[in-house]
């Protein structure tokens, strides 16, 4: 069967870079990035500056305080979020709270999958005694941001991709590669570069289906990939009925989790996956 190119890669990439559906984001993010660069700026000052944007503040606080994200009712100000979660995690969360807002209802499973993956990533990172656990959680949250972009910018074409994957028995990202010439991890990488996210987030998002090819931050890449797979295994995949593909052997070697540890992680996340099943983005309050 000939490959069917339904979206031109270059023009799609340009489209992604323009991203008309989230207009306020680049401006705010570049300001945020500038402030972080200046070592003299205090966290408190950054928190105050961000708080001037009321819409943003309320969205960010809603997300981190939701019963699902992991800090229910505990974070009351942007400065507090910065101290507790760190700059990079907050930056990722700002993006998340903005981008998931405009999703149509058929993308809700993707939203749930993202929240669940972030819980899994946090839980795995904790179990492995990693530092900066919140950054692992944000990478989990944003790992499928490329799929979100496809949903927003090319909904019809994307349905086509999923259908093709289902009938051919191949994975979604392989089918994307085959039909589009790029996959959702590539899109995630482009958009995160555009948003000037740090590499420790860009690489895990861009390499979560190509663990071996990652150019750095290998542990984060592996944890992001594993959290995605674990959630799919637990029935929290964005698209149902796709059997799991084996995880890269390097993960087996570098993440030597025991049965007891896996039991503990699964036990931690299972109730949330159940509770997430009926969640819609408006519930994140």
């Amino acid at each position: 069967m000939s490959t069917e190119l339904i979206i031109d890669k270059d023009s799609f990439r340009k489209k992604v870079e323009r991203l008309t559906n989230i207009p306020t984001l680049p401006n705010l993010l570049s300001k945020f990035t500038e402030m972080i660069k200046n070592p003299k700026t205090s966290m408190d000052a950054i928190g105050k500056e961000l708080s001037k944007d009321q819409v943003l503040t309320s969205k960010l606080l809603k997300l981190v305080n939701s019963a699902f994200y992991g800090f229910p009712g505990r974070i009351s100000t942007v400065s507090h979020a910065l101290v507790l979660l760190g700059y990079d995690a907050v930056k990722g969360l700002i993006i998340t709270s903005n981008i998931f807002e405009n999703l149509s209802s058929d993308a809700f499973p993707l939203w749930r999958h993202s929240i669940a993956s972030s819980l899994a990533a946090r839980s795995i990172a904790n179990e492995l005694s990693m530092q900066d656990v919140e950054e692992f959680a944000v990478a989990g949250l944003l790992h499928d941001i490329g799929k979100v972009i496809l949903h927003i910018e090319a909904p019809e074409e994307y349905k086509h991709v999923i259908e093709k994957a289902r009938t051919s028995g191949r994975t979604i990202w392989e089918t994307e590669q085959e039909m589009l010439g790029f996959d959702h991890a590539n899109i995630g990488q482009w958009i995160c570069e555009k948003w000037t996210l740090p590499e420790k987030l860009i690489i895990p998002i861009g390499s979560h289906h190509a663990v071996k090819d990652a150019s750095g931050f290998h542990m984060r890449v592996m944890v992001t990939s594993l959290s995605d797979m674990m959630i799919r295994g637990m029935g929290g995949g964005a698209e149902e009925d796709f059997p799991l593909e084996p995880i890269d052997p390097i993960c087996e070697e570098k993440i030597p989790l025991t049965q007891d540890q896996i039991d503990k992680i699964a036990e931690n996340i299972a109730p949330e996956i159940g509770a997430l099943q009926h969640l819609v983005p408006e519930d994140m309050k």
């Binding site: 295994g233 009925d241 059997p243 995880i247 993960c251 025991t258 039991d263 699964a266």
Partner: peptide
Amino acid sequence: KKRFLNIKSDSILGKLKISLLKN
């Protein structure tokens, strides 16, 4: 079982399957 069709039992994901069935 269907979801884990392609997963070997001695892998990380294999352990997850054991965990889920136990639950």
